[in-house]
Amino acid sequence: MDRMHFGQHSSSQFNEALESIRNRLMEMGGLVEKQVVDALEALLRADSGLAEKVLQTEDRVDQQEILIDEECARVLALRHPAASDLRLIIAVSKAVSDLERIGDESAKIAAMALQLAEEGESPRGYVEVRHIGNHVRNMLRDTLDAFARFDADKAVEVAAEDSEVDLEYRSAMRALVTFMMEDPRAISRVLNIIWSLRALERIGDHARNIGEQVIFLVKGTDVRHISVDEMEKEVKKT
């Protein structure tokens, strides 16, 4: 990892604070990843028990967000971090917001799962949910990996995958809209599937955002709001 050498700080307390922030972020990432997986399972298997569990865990995700933000604020106030330390704090505090939002989206999926479980199974749209769901799950795992290993190349891959997910989302929408026109009685059920797909697509966006923070952390360049190709060039450049 170029120029990422955490753990050699001349102040051991500062070291510990940075280390603790990173660990907490990874912990939160793990929890959120589990939320996404559980919400998807609950939806696809019409498992209302699992959906309830996802909704209950959301509080813990929120608490972790607050905790990590407090630690970041403390380091900013007491240590005046600079260069890579500063970028770490900025990247973590932004990534934490994205993780929390991913938690929110998972809760939305879980709420849809509850409704769909009550209304009885509707196989329509499940193929798309499974497909996009798997994709988004991998993106989230990869982006957290990239953060843990300071791997900017992997973060670019996540962004590329996000573009694919967006395409898949659009074609799934077309298919489901066609289906609703053919069978208006299924509209309310299909809408629930659509909301879930929408939530998954948003999770993909948040995973990409986290990847962008990884690139900022490792390379020091801001790659938000540019295309994947430009992003790749920026990462190769520095």
């Binding site: 120029r3 050498h5 050699q8």
Partner: peptide, 13 residues
């Protein structure tokens, strides 16, 4: 430069 980074972040490794 790495040395600058090391100095301003307070670490010399």
């Amino acid at each position: 430069h790495e040395l600058t980074e090391a100095y301003i972040t307070g670490r010399f490794g």
